[in-house]
């Protein structure tokens, strides 16, 4: 059976330079690592032009990070480009991620890789820039940065500048403190969505920016309650409004944002 698998795969590749027995050994290694025949088939379907040795090396590295066969396959299916990296690059990146404190207890790093496998293919510079923005511009503590990376590994994929803007928006405009920002998983939510919901509540009279002393005349809903619920729940439970109104509001707000503070050109009002 495996013979058939091997043959069909080999056809797509430059199988010439790899002996049948060599390939057989490799497939045995995959089996030893816990991959089923079907999974091995799937694995080989990714990046078909890749040499089997490289494939094996990358998979091994991922397993060394503590991933099991299942999550390795899932991660690679999500980001097949990881297969193109050399084992050494992978190891470097894993080391760096561990130093970021993600790796404590292995479980965490594993989670990050599953949630966001493309983190391996990011440039060193990019990751560094994101972490620096979180620490220096947003003034999160090291522990908080770690928690953010745990909770929303995808921050690493964002433009550092956008992260800073998003943080400033909730911190200054909405008056949300660091701890609550972390708990809200803010960085999973697109900024446009955050603004839509916040400004909608504000204009409904249901959200106020705290004054200098941090006080408001009404009790604001928590950031978490605003952004981590479905739109339906947000409208029913927090905004107490209708979908029709929110739909129109989003369109109007988009127009407003596009125009900045420019006044709308019109003739007379009365």
């Amino acid at each position: 059976l495996l013979e058939a698998v091997r043959l069909s795969l080999a056809e797509q590749q430059r199988q010439a330079d790899i002996g049948s027995s060599e390939l057989g050994k490799m497939l045995d290694s995959f089996s030893d690592m816990g991959f089923s025949n079907a999974q091995i088939m799937q694995l080989f379907r990714l990046q078909p032009k890749l040499a089997p040795q490289t494939r094996l090396a990358v998979v091994s590295e991922l397993l060394l990070l503590g991933l099991d066969a299942d999550s390795t396959l899932r991660a690679l299916q999500k980001s097949p480009e990881v297969l193109r990296m050399t084992a050494q690059q992978l190891r470097h990146r894993a080391d760096y991620l561990r130093r970021l404190d993600l790796g404590e207890g292995n479980m965490n790093l594993q989670q990050v890789v599953i949630d966001c496998p493309s983190i391996f293919t990011l440039s060193w510079k990019k990751i560094d820039a994101v972490v620096r923005v979180l620490k220096e511009k947003c003034v999160f503590t090291v522990d908080q940065v770690t928690e953010i990376l745990h909770r929303c590994p995808n921050v690493l994929l964002e433009e550092p500048h956008d992260l800073e803007y998003k943080f400033q928006y909730v911190y200054f405009r909405m008056g949300v403190k660091h701890k609550a920002v972390v708990k809200s998983d803010l960085f999973r939510t697109p900024i446009a969505e955050v603004k839509n919901r916040h400004i909608f509540l504000e204009r409904l009279g249901l959200y106020q920016t705290p004054d200098k002393k941090g006080q408001t005349q009404i009790v604001n809903p928590k950031l978490k309650e605003i952004i981590r619920v479905s739109e339906g729940d947000f409208l029913v439970k927090i905004a107490h409004s209708s979908l029709q109104e929110f739909e129109v509001f989003k369109k109007l707000l988009a127009q407003e944002e596009e125009e900045g503070d420019q006044d709308i050109a019109s003739e007379e009002t009365d």
Binding site: L204, G205, H240, S241, F249, Q255
Partner: peptide, 15 residues
């Protein structure tokens, strides 16, 4: 009463 928030968001958005 309960209609006020809906009026308010209207007042504060483009007419």
């Amino acid at each position: 009463g309960s209609r006020w928030p809906s009026i308010r968001v209207g007042l504060l958005s483009e007419q």
